[in-house]
Design a protein around this nucleic acid. Structure first.
Lengths: 217, 217
DNA sequence: CAAATTATTTAGTCTTGCCTAAAAAAGTTT
DNA sequence: AAACTTTTTTAGGCAAGACTAAATAATTTG
């Protein structure tokens, strides 16, 4: 299992959480910051190895083996994040790049001992669940932003609509995965929401809110 | 700096310690478990980058920049070894393979925070000194046990061969870093040594003695 | 010192993982 | 449904890092 193959599996896993159907090569390419044609190549290799199911023009999905492999990478990533934050005093924004490297270290003993050293944490510092050594992972209850009551604080955990128009809109509003959003008020007339994003205040339509997954803090 | 380039620099550094002249492509190839022709290629690339000095048929030596880079890799390797042993309860024959991977993680902050977390250790579990963040490394005056005269008392400070076979042998004989060893007698015929270890008496072959570094008390 | 041997480099190939450009399929319009 | 647009795949190429086989330099030996 190469570094690159692991990254593909991880990205396919994450995309699968928000979109149960076949994951398109385009979606993978934009996450990988590479090109769809490169993805087609790799996805065929992963299919040959039995890690994904792939049919031309139909997108990709993980096999049980592929999902398990992906979960082990997620497990490593999140445990290292806990380590960096709790033991080495990293701040949140510094953690990701390093965990991204550490997740590829191959040693079952290492990761199991690390888990023990950290006292078997069940969530990473974002509140995302950490898979156990058998690949079991707690379900996160994510909701649509449109279902959140005024006054609540939530974290953005995904999108329902992954069109580039929508994603570009989110970029423009500086809403990203992990962003903290406070729902200031809800307009009864059109169900639009006024949000607090950092120190900015933004109003978004119900259509926007109905396509953004969040979890309560 | 790729994974592979880092490995070359590290190996050239280690070979340079025992052989001050140009390091041959052959010597590097056997350490890398690859072929001399592959080494020639890579060594030319490293020379182009100013990390080594290379003249055809004359072997290789590190530039200041190359040596510094190598020392930073050695630093990471040895700090991770300390972490694995002290915090994750690895035994000293298990640490090497994992440290071999961890030494390539790129983050100055990570390694400096790790050093602090470990309380600024000066030696790794094999008794080798840990370079500081400026590339300064302590000189150890260590001798091989095989060079010690009968009657002398010494302390174990490191190993030359760090294969797990050898390390496990040492564990079995209860020889560890810091162990006091008294050379009781030396057999002229095969140069084997009879040692006093605590209150035990053990006979070891010359091959064992020639792979154990000690310092005189 | 010349011949034989050994060490080292060069030349050409392979695999991995990526790319661009072109072709083909799918999806959308009119 | 034909024409157009978008998405996805195919084809062909490139760089890194390794390899084998052949050539060449260095070293050892008779």
């Amino acid at each position: 299992m190469t570094y690159s193959e692991e990254n593909y599996l991880k990205i396919i896993y994450h995309l699968s959480l928000n979109q149960a159907k076949g994951i398109t090569t385009n979606a993978i390419a934009s996450q990988m910051e590479s090109k769809p044609s490169s993805v087609t190549d790799m996805v065929q290799k992963l299919a040959d190895k039995g890690l994904v199911v792939y049919k031309k023009y139909q997108g990709v999905s993980l096999t049980d083996e592929g999902r398990f492999t992906a979960l082990m990478i997620v497990r490593k990533h999140r445990l290292w994040e806990v380590f960096l934050l709790e033991k080495l005093d990293f701040s949140w924004d510094e953690v990701h790049d390093v965990a991204e490297q550490l997740e590829h270290i191959k040693s079952d003993k290492l990761i199991n001992k690390l888990e023990e050293f950290l006292d078997f944490p069940t969530e990473d510092p974002h509140g995302d669940p950490i898979p156990d050594r058998n690949g079991k992972i707690a379900k996160v209850d994510k909701k649509l932003l449109s279902e959140i009551a005024a006054g609540k604080k939530v974290i953005c955990v995904g999108v329902k609509d992954s069109s580039s128009a929508f994603l570009q809109y989110l970029d423009k509003q500086q809403i990203a995965l992990g962003s903290t959003i406070e729902v200031m008020s809800k307009e009864d007339f059109d169900m639009s929401l006024t949000l607090k994003l950092g120190d900015k205040q933004v109003t978004v339509s119900n259509k926007i809110a109905a396509n953004l997954f969040v979890k309560t803090i």
